[in-house]
Design a protein around this nucleic acid. Structure first.
Lengths: 128, 128, 128, 128
DNA sequence: GTGGTCTAGACCACG
DNA sequence: GTGGTCTAGACCACT
């Protein structure tokens, strides 16, 4: 089940993208699985169909899902789409953004790392 | 020295905010230190003065810096301007964004955590 | 100057994407060059601004251009974004599609190759 | 043997059209040869019969195949059903699509041409 | 003025 | 019924 929050700083379509990415990474959505249709997800989230379609389009461009016209949207078999440099660049950027966001919140580094580690392990390790 | 890059997905004013936050958290900017004026920083970064002013405004609202009329802008003494709920909310949001961004990059959880841990420790622990 | 044709089987936004890709590959658009604004290109092509924005968004996702909010859209410095496998896969797919489209048109293979070669050389070699 | 793949950007009916075109151009399907019935091909590919029927309809319109009532579908004797203008238009469009798709993949023009040349020669020259 | 997001609604292509 | 494209128009964020 995907949820969107208006309080989140990310736009709706990006919240959808991130949520589905996490489900795929965690194995909750496996290759071949069918995603909810654009219209049904839009209704469930009470957003416009175009907003869901935009999220699905980006996930398709990333090679994570594929849509079969008239049939629906499905999780793709995994493939390495990005170069190592690009993957590295994106990780570095994500780290930079994260550090910039939490640097002055007053949490201990160990607490932050523990928090993140728990979430990541739960998602990715659980999958293996 | 702060730098802004066009390749970054964050808007310029946010890059400035994050960079100053990190400098403060890491001790590179200590309480009482003087920051460059809005105008001079804008000139140095070759961005609009409004952009720098916007960044300084948010940092002021967070209680990280304060401007003394006619004198300049200075790093504030450490204090908690944000409520615990707000701090928690921001951390949770940052974790969500980060996980959504790196979930499908294909890195091992340990590698991601190690990477982040190194950056955080370098910044925050070094400071204490 | 970019043009779109209603007779083309590609949707408008894809025609725009392909045209800009070719201009970038051919060096007609160099890194740092400014592209026409979303609104002005939309007006010139007499299409909706969303259509142009969609094309620009995909080119941004491909790393070919970057947009600076409030300033405009610019050609990015080149970087290798895709893995070798993905580049190879895309070339193979393009070749398959092309061959499927021209196989029974009755042209001689040499003529087809010569035609394509001329276009490619004009674009890519001219650039070096 | 024809195969369809979900990873391909073309709709299924177009994949079928292209595959049969290539087989005819390459001589693997010669004039007079019998094609599988709409139903049997649909069953073999596990696609809707409408999809195969649509592909056969377009191939018939192009004069490449013909159905003899109650007997089956057969490869037509070679003839030019398309006007020179239409053939030229299709070639030009195919070239445009191809160039747009590969322009920014980072391959050398010679490599692209060599690749395409090999496939075309293998198909068409071998046939003569 | 620039790009980004979202909505509403229409029409088409596909299966 | 499914996704894809396009339009029109609004509102927001950024500079």
């Amino acid at each position: 089940m995907i949820t969107v929050t208006t309080g989140d700083s990310r736009p709706i379509f990006r919240q959808i993208i991130d949520a589905i990415r996490v489900k795929i990474a965690g194995g909750e959505l496996a290759p071949g699985d069918k995603l909810p249709s654009v219209r049904s997800l839009a209704m469930q989230l009470t957003v416009n169909t175009n907003t869901v379609a935009k999220a699905y389009a980006e996930l398709t461009a990333e090679g994570l899902i594929e849509s079969r016209a008239g049939v629906g949207v499905f999780v793709s078999p995994p493939r390495r789409r990005l170069s190592d440099e690009e993957r590295e660049r994106r990780l570095a950027e994500a780290v930079d953004h994260f550090v910039g966001a939490v640097a002055t919140l007053g949490f201990e580094p160990e607490d932050i790392v523990a928090r993140l580690s728990a979430v990541l392990d739960d998602l990715l390790v659980h999958h293996r």
